[in-house]
């Protein structure tokens, strides 16, 4: 399988605060990588770097062989290859669900409106939200908003999808519907990079687990089941133990 995303020696700091240290990661086409780690360890910052929302102090990120560089002209082209879903949905509040979804395909990719609407309709139907297409974001529940945000990212046909704790702001009963949607995507062969605190979901969806602590990749493994049973580093063990109640 071909390398889609390649991160080498990524180094990121905010002022004197070093947030990511020498991160190396390769994601192949069709792979689902789940990133876990304690709060503040740099997971969100990492995803933001991948999308050119942060400037790097050192290191190289390439998507499909092309370098991701914030503040360069080409960045808008690259971002079309990288879909991103935020914890707080970030739908555009002044637009209907449908307009939220087709805006970028129309304005950025200059696609035919009829065709974009048709695909948007199909995708909304798949996530069970077709009847909400003319609603405004404020009229939707958190789970519905998040599914719309996922559809919005999908309609751009990105090569890779980034998810940053997309269920963290949801009520428990809505977490499931969003995870189902993501699981279906994973099964259909999408390349995904997922940051989550839902360990059961991570176990179910991941081809590979990356454990980050204090800005470093501490453990990385494709033996997902083994990792959750018996992680090989003490730091991962300690982190996982915070999810069990004994």
């Amino acid at each position: 399988m071909s390398e889609l995303l390649k991160v080498t020696h990524l180094h990121k700091e905010f002022g004197k605060n070093v947030v990511l240290k020498d991160i190396n990661l390769t994601v192949k086409k069709g792979e689902v990588v789940v990133i876990i780690g304690p709060s503040g360890c740099g997971k969100s910052t990492f995803l933001r770097c991948l999308n050119g929302l942060e400037e790097l102090q050192d290191g190289v990120i390439t998507v499909d062989g092309l370098p991701v560089e914030a503040n360069k002209r080409e960045i808008t082209k690259l971002r079309q290859k990288i879909g991103m879903v935020f914890q707080s949905y970030e739908l555009f509040p002044h637009m209907s669900v449908l307009d939220n979804i087709i805006l970028a395909p129309l304005k950025v990719q200059r696609r035919n409106k009829e065709e974009a609407v048709r695909e948007a309709t199909e995708l909304l139907d798949k996530v069970g939200l077709l009847d909400k297409k003319d609603y405004f974001p404020r009229q939707l529940s958190g789970g519905q908003k998040q599914r719309v945000a996922i559809v919005r990212a999908l309609l751009m046909h990105p090569d890779i999808l980034l998810f940053d704790e997309v269920t963290a702001a949801l009520d428990p009963e809505m977490v499931h519907e969003v995870l189902e949607t993501m699981l279906a995507l994973a099964r259909s062969g999408s390349t995904m990079l997922i940051v989550t605190h839902e360990m059961a979901f991570a176990k179910a969806v991941a081809d590979r687990i990356v454990f980050i602590d204090k800005g470093e990749i501490v453990e990385e493994t494709t033996d997902v089941a083994d990792f959750f049973k018996e992680p090989s580093t003490p730091r991962a063990k300690k982190f996982l133990s915070t999810f069990t109640y004994e």
Partner: peptide, 25 residues
């Protein structure tokens, strides 16, 4: 600011983001 970032992440340019996302709000 995250509305701007959300728009950027869809590949929208600075000008498009201003015109379609930020200004109307």
């Amino acid at each position: 600011i995250i509305q701007t970032e959300s728009s950027y992440s869809l590949g929208m340019s600075k000008l498009q983001t201003f015109w379609y996302i930020i200004l109307p709000q």
